[in-house]
């Protein structure tokens, strides 16, 4: 990772507190343009909070987060402009159940990106083709399997042509036989050079796709490095323990 590359995310000493619980305890980390960062750690370690603070679904209490050079928590920042560029894929898919698959992909393109319906639909169909669900364009999300819904959700994020994608445990709600199809789509997105931050328990995916693995525990980053380093020679005891339990 050369340091002269542009930083998509630059988080400095961020703190998030729920009541008396420190979800994030002075965390600093960067994501470079085109980089794939996988964030792992036990539940409650703050990894989802970290991810969600990047598009300000969680508002941090202290510290600073720059996304593409813009301080997202500054008073003058229009957060919707940031969110247009930073897509998010959720554990529970969150497709809009009252809209068809196609409409799920076109809504924000039309409303936010101000594209014409025709342009939006063309873009949407191309993406549905890519995730292998073109024939489901007119279906409602409720008629799709979990894996299919998540692939649609990824396509929905891509339809905005974001600079970066955040994945918050995208396969955790899926039946085991559907995990593969979603990971395949994520890998293909990664191959095309998308900047990605992924919270996941899929160690195979981390090994294969990640440029860098971040291990979190108790609201802090305790270990950080390449997948080779992390999976073969972790230095921190907590990381070793976690790996021995999960692998």
């Amino acid at each position: 990772m050369s340091t002269n590359r542009r930083k998509m995310v630059e988080a400095t000493e961020i703190v998030k507190i729920y009541g008396s619980f420190k979800a994030l305890d002075r965390v600093s980390f960067d994501v470079f343009d085109g980089e794939k960062v996988v964030i792992i750690g036990p539940s409650g370690s703050g990894k989802s909070t970290l991810l969600r603070s990047i598009n300000r679904l969680e508002v941090i209490d202290r510290g600073r987060i720059l996304v593409d050079g813009i301080d997202i928590n500054a008073a003058k920042t229009d957060i919707t402009k940031i969110r247009e560029e930073v897509g998010m894929v959720f554990q529970s898919f969150n497709l809009f159940p009252h809209k068809t698959v196609l409409e799920n992909l076109t809504l924000a393109q039309i409303v936010v990106r101000k594209r014409s319906r025709q342009d939006a639909e063309e873009r949407a169909m191309a993406l549905l083709e890519r995730v292998g669900l073109a024939e489901k364009a007119k279906a409602y999300p409720g008629k799709l399997s979990g894996g299919q819904q998540q692939r649609v959700a990824i396509a929905r994020s891509l339809a905005m042509d974001p600079k970066m994608l955040l994945f918050d445990e995208p396969t955790s709600a899926l039946d085991p036989e559907m995990i593969g199809e979603v990971l395949d789509v994520m890998k293909s997105v990664a191959r095309e050079g998308m900047t990605m931050a992924v919270v996941t328990h899929e160690m195979g995916f981390a090994r294969e796709v990640a440029d860098r693995v971040i291990f979190m525990d108790a609201g802090r980053i305790v270990e950080e490095g390449t997948p080779e380093h992390f999976f073969t020679a972790p230095t921190h005891d907590r990381a070793k323990l976690f790996l021995s339990q999960i692998l």
């Binding site: 959720f90 809504l107 990106r113």
Partner: peptide, 12 residues
């Protein structure tokens, strides 16, 4: 999650 999904797509 519906609210969050819409917001994360840049909707106000």
């Amino acid at each position: 999650g519906q609210n969050e999904a819409a917001l994360s797509l840049g909707m106000n």
